[in-house]
Design a protein around this nucleic acid. Structure first.
Length: 297
DNA sequence: ACTACTCCCTGCCAGC
DNA sequence: TGCTGGCAGGGAGTAG
């Protein structure tokens, strides 16, 4: 499910169950996901207390009391769910629709409840593009997967000036540049499309055209920075997008997908007031792009 | 330092 | 009904 808003929704869903809880055991049901699990994976987590759950871009960061950090990426199809431990009943915690039988449940964290009964946090990932790695907290920022990441679209750092600077000189189509995690960290296919629609910019435009000749801010770069920040904020507020019945950690659905203006809406009329255009699907870099050729220029 | 393309894997759905 | 091809929220690796 996971672009930034979905990962943030997962983080918020897991936080009350995990922060302050102790890892009793970890069941690792296969040797690898996208990458092999770290050597001694389960043993290195056992008996540790989870001190904090963080996020950077699309990475979930599980901080442990020994200053190690579990880096989790959900890939295309990874999800977490929380269930009652062993025979305990947990009101309201129904199962992920795609794992009623436990299929593709690859990792199960057995946790002591901080105050209440024990819990299980279960990682499910049919396509196995996700992964889990361990590092030390002091090495986190320098970790090869995190070191090159661009600006977070939450908060105030992303503005027209910074975005123009990041895109200056890039010959790639604007949409492809937005998908590059070294530019804006956490944007994926849905929110790149939606932000471009909000900013009325064509995904086919050369990225560099958003910067002034000296690399400075333009009206377009300011508009796009604003659009990115608001679409991400709106999506987080909606609990992310739930495609193909994907669920949050407690089994509820995000609802941002009902707000899509262009994503997966090929052939429907553009939502822009007064626009007569029709949403079109094109392929860029092997991924579908949805946009309105009439009002996105 | 860019860009473009392939590949990893399973599940689902439209079209035959 | 059953098969097939295409597509899916990501990104690492490689070649140019």
């Amino acid at each position: 499910m996971p672009e930034l808003p979905e990962v943030e929704t997962v983080r918020r869903g897991l936080q009350p169950a995990m922060e302050g809880a102790r890892v009793l055991t970890v069941e690792q049901r296969r040797p690898d996901l996208r990458f092999p699990f770290p050597a001694g994976f389960a043993g290195r987590l056992k008996d540790r207390t989870v001190t904090a759950l963080g996020r950077r871009a699309k990475y979930l960061l599980m901080h442990l009391e020994d200053d190690s950090v579990l880096i989790c990426h959900l890939g295309m199809s990874g999800s977490f769910r929380v269930e009652a431990g062993e025979d305990e009943a947990l009101p309201g915690a129904f199962h992920h629709t795609r794992s009623k039988d436990g299929k593709h449940d690859h990792v199960i964290f057995h946790l002591s409840g901080e105050t209440g009964p024990p819990l299980r946090v279960i990682y499910n990932d049919p396509r196995r593009f996700g992964f889990m790695l361990l590092t030390k907290a002091e090495d986190l920022d320098a970790h090869p997967l995190l070191a090159g990441l661009g600006v977070e679209p939450t908060g105030n750092a992303l503005d027209g000036r910074l975005l123009a600077r990041l895109l200056a000189g890039r010959r790639a189509p604007l949409k492809a540049a937005l998908m590059d995690q070294r530019v804006v960290a956490g944007l994926g296919n849905i929110y790149a499309c939606e932000a471009l629609w909000r900013a009325k910019l064509s995904p086919r435009r050369t990225a560099a055209t958003l910067a002034a000749r000296d690399g400075g801010e333009t009206a377009r770069s300011a508009r796009l920075a604003e659009a990115i920040r608001t679409v991400i904020a709106d999506a987080i507020a909606a609990g992310g997008s739930s495609l193909r019945d994907y669920m949050q950690t407690d089994g509820t659905l995000g609802y941002f997908q009902h707000t899509f203006s262009v994503y997966d809406r090929e052939g429907v009329p553009c939502r822009t007031a007064g626009c007569e255009g029709t949403v079109q699907r094109i392929v860029q870099g092997g991924r579908s792009t949805f946009y309105c050729p009439a009002c996105q220029r």
